[in-house]
Each structure stands twice: as C-alpha cells, then as structure tokens.
C-alpha cells in the first residue's frame, strides 16, 4: 500500500515539471507583457522592475532561476501586487476556495446520495421520476446559468439572501448550492444505477431472507457496493469543483483562488499565473490519488492490482 502511494507521489514530479515548462514558455512567448500599460514606463523604472522580477536575464536563465526558486518552495513576487509574494496571495485566497469547495461537495454528496438511493429503492415510481428529472435539469443547466437565476429568485425577488460576497453565513448559501448542484445531479444518477445493480444480487436476497430489516439490508449490505461508481466519480468531481470555482467565484465575488487565477491571467501577472496553475495541478493530482485510495479501501479486489 505504502509502495503504491510512494510510486504515485513520484509520478507527480514529471507531470508538474511538464506543466511548469509548458506554462512558463507559453505565457512568455505570447505577445504583450506585464509592464505594457497605456502610459509608457520610463526606461530606468522599467529596468528596475525587470531586475526585481528577474526579467533582464535571458529566457533560459529565468527558467532555471524559477525552477531553483520552486525547489525552495518560493513562487516569487506577484507582478500586480508588488508587496505580496505569490505564496502569500495563494495563502490568502485558498482557504476561501477550500471552504466553498467543501460546502459544495457536502451539497453534492448529501443531496445526490439521498436522491439516488431513495430513487433506487422504488424504481419507476414517482419517488424515482421526480428526483431523476431534477437531476437531468441539474446536469443540463450550467453553473453560470443556475447561479444568476438563483440570485434573481432568492436575492432580488424574495430578498432572502445576499446577492454576492463571502462574509456572512447567509452569503455562502447560494455559491455553495450553485457549485454543488451539477455534481449532486451526477451523484444521484450514479448512485441510483449502482444501487439498482447491487440490489439485484443474490446476497441481498439472502440478507432479506434472513429477515433483516430493509434499512439494515440497504445500509449494511447494499451501500458499500452501490456507491462504488460515486467514489470513482469523486476524482473528476473534485477537479470540476476546483475549476468550477472560476465561474462561481466570479459571479458571487468570492475572494478565492479561482477568481484570482482568472484575474492574474487578465493582468498578465506571470508569477501569479504560474503559481496558481501549479497549485491547481498539484491539488487535482492529490485528490485523484486520494480517490484511488478510497476506492481500494472500498473494493478489496483492487488491492493486489
């Protein structure tokens, strides 16, 4: 087990290296630079700026310097906010994104599992059709449509919740719902399918024949196998929730990593773009690994593979 984890962790290194290299040269080869403003910067100021950000040296030298910084865990100073380092800026925005992602995941898993499992216990009844139709709506309505529509109804029409922001508990409801809804829909469909398959197995019939209560049959015997497809989906779902935060954080003005990334790209803040991309990539790799481990734990047949 530990061997597998170590091997997977070692695989992160080349992937992250490829990402660093690709993004580093991609953004520097593109036309335009971080010091291009409407007003021309005086040459001596420009020279100082370039020295501060290590841009006076040849490109390959910048690249190796950046890699050396990375090895020390230093992502460099931000171009836009010169007084902050990229490490500090990520440190400020990430907790907000993590909180938002966590709530969204709770929404997705709770709503999704409840709807999916309850639908699977009475297939082809009203209890199946209603949540499954809602799930189809959840899949087809993208977050940047759902978010504004929720604001329109709950904030502007009924005046129940704030339009935007991320400071009071009430302001966190709509962003979390918006981000989690689509994944709740997928989880509902997956858990319904998985449960239906497991419930048709012989061992479930045996459990029922033993006279176990229906709750016990479902919770103790069917659930573990039935939610396996949901677990494999959690990897892509985490990646999706992370990149979904671009839109949701922009709509609701949440000061998180996603909005920071989009803004840094618009500002051509080279170091901040690099830093956030790397951070996102590492997060996605990490969550994929975590999901694989949960999978192995749930399905012992995978342990020797």
């Amino acid at each position: 087990m530990i061997k597998i984890i170590v091997r997977r962790l070692l695989e992160f290194v080349p992937v992250l290296f490829i990402i660093v290299t690709l993004v580093f040269f991609l953004i520097r080869l593109a036309p335009g630079g971080p010091f291009d403003r409407d007003k021309e910067v005086p040459p001596e100021v420009r020279k100082q700026l370039e020295a501060y950000y290590n841009m006076g040296v040849p490109l390959y030298q910048q690249y190796f310097d950046y890699l050396a910084g990375l090895a020390r865990g230093d992502l460099g100073p931000s171009f836009k906010n010169a007084s902050y380092s990229v490490n500090e800026m990520i440190g400020m925005s990430f907790p907000n994104s993590l909180e938002l992602g966590f709530y969204a995941m709770c929404v997705a898993v709770t709503l999704g599992l409840l709807a999916g499992i309850s639908a699977s216990l009475k297939p082809n009844s009203l209890r199946d059709y209603v949540p499954m139709s809602l799930a189809m709506v959840g899949i087809c309505v993208p977050s940047f449509v759902l978010g504004p529509l929720l604001v329109l109804v709950f904030s502007l029409h009924f005046d129940l919740l704030p339009v935007a922001g991320w400071n009071t508990p009430a302001s966190k409801v709509l962003p979390s719902l918006t981000l989690g809804a689509m994944y709740a829909a997928y989880i509902a469909r997956l858990s319904r399918g998985g449960m239906l398959e497991v419930l048709s197995n012989d061992f479930i019939r045996t459990a029922r024949a033993k006279g176990l209560s229906e709750t016990r049959v479902v919770l103790r015997h069917a659930l573990r196998g039935g939610i396996a497809p949901v677990v494999s989906f959690l990897g892509p779902a985490t990646a999706g929730i992370l990149s979904g935060s671009f839109v949701v954080e922009t709509i609701f003005q949440v000061p998180g990593l996603g909005r920071q990334f989009v803004e840094s790209a618009f500002n051509r803040d080279y170091t901040l773009v690099m830093g956030t991309v790397l951070f996102f990539a590492a997060l996605i790799l990490f969550f994929n690994l975590l999901v694989d481990l949960i999978h192995t734990w749930l399905d012992p047949r995978l342990r020797n593979a």
Binding site: P14, L22, L26, G32, R268, A281, L285
Partner: peptide, 20 residues
C-alpha cells in the same frame, strides 16, 4: 493518461488570454 491529469480548463484560459 498524463494529459488527463493536466488541468485543461486552465490551459484553455491561458491560451485564450495570452494569444488573443
């Protein structure tokens, strides 16, 4: 497999911002 692990939405955003 490796490309699956890359955060592609981010790459598309970078491409669109930096290359017009």
């Amino acid at each position: 497999d490796i490309m699956y692990a890359l955060p592609f939405t981010i790459f598309v955003i970078i491409l669109m911002v930096f290359f017009g």
